[in-house]
Design a protein around this nucleic acid. Structure first.
Lengths: 236, 236
DNA sequence: CGCGATTTTGATAATGTTCAACAGTAGTGG
DNA sequence: CCACTACTGTTGAACATTATCAAAATCGCG
C-alpha cells in the first residue's frame, strides 16, 4: 500500500525559476521572489514535516495532498486544481505531502511575503474557505458513504453544474452524457476515497455493466447517464 | 439515525445580546454589532442552507458542525472549542449545521464587518488554517483507521502534549493517567468517527477490559495508561 | 422507587478487505 | 512489427470488520 516511497519520489522544488512581474487580477503575481515551477506528473512538491517556508499557487495542473500512517496506509486528503493554494500552514511545518497528478505549473511564494502584503489575505482567505467546505463534504463521504456512493460522488465531481442543489436534470432532448478525465490512477482514487484499489475497480466494473459509464481509457470515462449516476451518490 | 430533527431542535440565535465594546487581545471584541449569545447544551446555532450573514466566535463552550444526508445519516465534521470560529463561508449559505455540545457563550459578528476590518483577517486566517489541518488529520482517521484506532485517537485528542511528534512518554515515576471529559454522547462520538453507536460502545468496553481506561461517568473517562492508549491510535 | 433515555451486549448479516491469479496496456528492444 | 516485460487494472474466493437488529442493563432524574 505504501507504494510511494520518499526515496524513489522525485524531490520537488527548483525548476525553471523566474522573478519577473506580470500584470494580473491580483498583486499576487507582481510579488517579488515568486518562483515558477514546472513539474511533470507524479513529482513531489513538498513532504509532510518539511519546513513550510513557501506556499504555492497552482497556475495549471493538479496536485494531491496526502498523509501517510507509519505502516504505509495512505490517505489523499485533498485534490487541488488551477487557482488553488497549497502549503499554507498555521505551524512552520507542512502537515501533508504534496505531489502532482499531471504535469503542472506552480508559483512558489515566500511565506514571509504573505505578512508584508496584507491585500493577499483576502485571496488566501477565499481559497481556505473553499478548501474547508470541500473537506466537510469529503468527511461525509469518508465517514458515512458506501463504496458505491463514494465512487459515484467522485465521478460527479467532474461534471460541473450537475448534482448541485439547483440541478434540474439534463437539457431536454440532448443525451445526458459527458466524457471526463480522472487524471488519477486507481490507487490514488482508492486512497482518496478511503477504499482499496480492488473495491474501486469492482465499482467501476459494476457501473459499466449497469450501462451508466463506458471506459474510453483507464482514466477517461464516458458517463452515459449523469442523472442516473447522481442518484447513486447518496447526496440526493 | 436521524435523531436530530430540525423541528425539535431549538432554533438558535438571539439570546442575550449586547453591543458594548470591551478591551481585549484584538479589535474583534471592540467591533460594533457584536451580539453575545448564551446557549445551553444541544442548542442549534445555525442550520445548513441558512443565509450565512453572521459568523461566530466561541468564547466558552463547545460546538459541533455536522452534515446530514437525505436518508438521515449524519456526519459530525468538526468539533470546535473556545477561541474557534464558525459560520464563515465562501458562499452566502452555511455549508453545515452547528449545535452546542455543552452550555456555550458565543459572539456573533456581522459578516459585513469582516471586510471593513481587515485586521481581523489575520486572526480569521489562523483559525482557518488550524481547522484545515484538523480536517486533514480527521480525513486520515475516517478514511484509513480501524474502529479501535478511531476511538483511541479520539480519546488522545483530550490529552494535551501527548501523542504529538516530540512526545517522550510520561514523567518518570508518576502514573501515566488522566481524567478526560468527552462532553459528547455516544451517538455524537459515533457520528464524528464515522462509526455506529454500538461499535463505539464495544471499543470502550474492550478498552475497559484491557485496563487502559475506567469509566467515571459515561462522558468522564479515566485513562490509566496514556502511552498504551497512544500506541493503539495507528499514528505512532 | 420507577420511568424514559442512553448505553451495553449478543447474534447475525452485509460490506469491504485480503490474497491470489489473470488480463490488459504501454513501453522496449530485437 | 512483434515478442517480451513490467506495470496497472480486473476478477474471484475466503475472510475480517463493522453494521444491523434485538434485547438486556444502566443511568439520570423526578
Amino acid at each position: 500500500m505504501a507504494y510511494l516511497d520518499r526515496q524513489t519520489a522525485t524531490q520537488g522544488d527548483g525548476l525553471s525559476e523566474s522573478t519577473r512581474g506580470e500584470r494580473a487580477w491580483s498583486d499576487f503575481m507582481a510579488l517579488p521572489r515568486v518562483k515558477r515551477l514546472a513539474l511533470s506528473e507524479h513529482e513531489a512538491v513538498f513532504f509532510e514535516g518539511d519546513r513550510a517556508d513557501r506556499l504555492f499557487e497552482i497556475t495549471d495542473g493538479a496536485v494531491m495532498l496526502y498523509k501517510l500512517l507509519p505502516d504505509g496506509r495512505r490517505q489523499v486528503v485533498e485534490v487541488l486544481g488551477s487557482g488553488d493554494l497549497l502549503g499554507l500552514q498555521a505551524s512552520h511545518l507542512y502537515d501533508c505531502s504534496a505531489e502532482t497528478l499531471i504535469p503542472s505549473r506552480l508559483r512558489a511564494i515566500d511565506r514571509n511575503d504573505l505578512d508584508t502584503y496584507p491585500e493577499l489575505q483576502t485571496h488566501v482567505n477565499r481559497c481556505l474557505l473553499g478548501q474547508l467546505q470541500t473537506m466537510h463534504e469529503h468527511a461525509v463521504l469518508l465517514g458515512r458513504k458506501s463504496a458505491f456512493e463514494r465512487v459515484t460522488s467522485f465521478l460527479m465531481r467532474f461534471v460541473p453544474k450537475r448534482g448541485a442543489i439547483g440541478c434540474e436534470g439534463p437539457v431536454k432532448g440532448s443525451p445526458d452524457e459527458k466524457v471526463i478525465v480522472l487524471a488519477m490512477t486507481r490507487q490514488e482514487i482508492a486512497d482518496y476515497l478511503g477504499l482499496t484499489i480492488e473495491t474501486v475497480s469492482r465499482v467501476f466494473s459494476d457501473l459499466r455493466r449497469r450501462g451508466l459509464i463506458t471506459a474510453e481509457k483507464h482514466d477517461r470515462v464516458r458517463i452515459l447517464d449523469i442523472c442516473g449516476l447522481c442518484k447513486l451518490t447518496g447526496t440526493h
